[in-house]
């Protein structure tokens, strides 16, 4: 999965114009650049470089299996992407997956974090249990769930038949395939959001709760008037991170359904993979990537705006 780098948004100290401080700062600057040089080199070579090359490729009929850019085609690739029902279909599948996974992954993580925070004994064990699935590699997770959900011999179909419910075809129909992969994803990644919420909850000073208790606040009122507002930055952060992560769905879908039946569950990342690698149309796939990038960028900008507003109201 791609890495989402989040700017933590902490204010940068404005440099003073005094001269001794300036030399000190420039020395610090040099050290800073030197220390980050290894990362910057990697970033340029493996992220910025390929991204720029991708933009260039999107204007050419580039082929994955031949060197060079191929013939220039102007905006033809973009025109084909924007008018392709297969592309927008897969974009729709990605959005549907995001809609299916984001609410449970945010709400469940929140509920689990609240409950785990209240436990007095074995807190570490509970945290470990919720976070443990997240460290598993996607191949193992999909293999386990593949066996659980497989028709005829899977554990879930068997349980359902045992209690007299005829099991749906979990991986053979479009509707259920989405739900199956969403269930897998919730189980697998809820631990990450859970940890973020836990950290947010621990940030709330206990004095506030004590004051509320002294004032005779009910647990529900404490939740609504203290926990929720003070946790708002974390809620916004988790929600946006989750939307961005869900928009990048590829691994689980590719491994569980291969985008099937047909291409009815193929997410947009797999569309790009299929066209860029299986069909050798690197230039066209690069154009599709750029369109997808713009869409994700818009979502990120929404987060940016929301975060600024949150900071203003919370005053952090």
């Amino acid at each position: 999965m791609a890495t989402t780098v989040i700017d933590d948004g902490l204010p940068v100290a404005v440099p003073d114009s005094g001269s001794p401080l300036r030399t000190q700062r420039s020395g610090e600057n040099r050290a800073g650049w030197l220390l980050s040089a290894p990362f910057i080199v990697f970033y340029l070579i493996f992220l910025i470089g390929p991204a720029l090359y991708g933009i260039l490729m999107s204007f050419f009929n580039t082929t994955s299996v031949k060197s060079g850019l191929g013939a220039a085609v102007g905006l033809a690739n973009y025109r084909e992407v924007l008018t392709s029902s297969a592309f927008w279909g897969s974009m729709g599948h990605t959005l549907w997956f995001t809609v299916l996974t984001t609410p449970p992954l945010v709400i469940l993580a929140f509920v689990f974090a609240i409950l785990a925070e209240r436990i007095r004994r074995g807190r570490a064990l509970v945290r470990f249990i919720f976070f443990a699935p997240f460290v598993m590699p996607v191949t193992s997770v999909t293999m386990i769930f593949g066996w659980l959900f497989t028709a005829q011999i899977g554990l879930f179909p068997k349980w359902l038949s045992d209690i007299g419910i005829s099991p749906p075809n979990f991986l053979g129909t479009t509707g259920w395939s989405f739900i199956t992969v969403a269930l897998l994803t919730v189980w697998w990644t809820v631990g990450f959001n859970f940890v973020l919420f836990l950290a947010g909850l621990q940030e709330i000073p206990t004095e506030v709760y004590e004051a509320a208790a002294i004032d005779g606040s009910t647990p529900r009122k404490t939740m609504w008037s203290i926990t929720m507002p003070l946790l708002r930055p974390t809620i916004v952060l988790v929600t946006m991170l989750q939307i961005l992560a869900s928009l990048q769905i590829f691994n689980q879908m590719y491994l569980m359904t291969g985008g099937g039946p047909g291409t009815s569950t193929r997410p947009v990342m797999e569309f790009i993979y299929d066209y860029g690698f299986s069909d050798y149309r690197a230039g066209y796939a690069a154009a599709a990537t750029m369109v997808y990038f713009v869409i994700v960028l818009v979502v990120s900008l929404v987060w940016f705006v929301l975060r600024r507003q949150t900071r203003k109201t919370v005053g952090a």
């Binding site: 999965m1 890495t3 989402t4 780098v5 989040i6 933590d8 902490l10 290894p38 990362f39 990697f42 990644t189 990450f192 940890v195 973020l196 836990l198 950290a199 621990q202 940030e203 952060l237 991170l241 992560a245």
Partner: peptide
């Protein structure tokens, strides 16, 4: 996925561990 630091309570500035990760 993300390497967002979750140590805000103890440290005002989250310390990125990217270098160790790259290393």
């Amino acid at each position: 996925m993300t390497d967002n630091s979750v140590q805000r309570r103890t440290q005002p500035h989250p310390s990125p561990t990217r270098r160790t990760i790259v290393g």
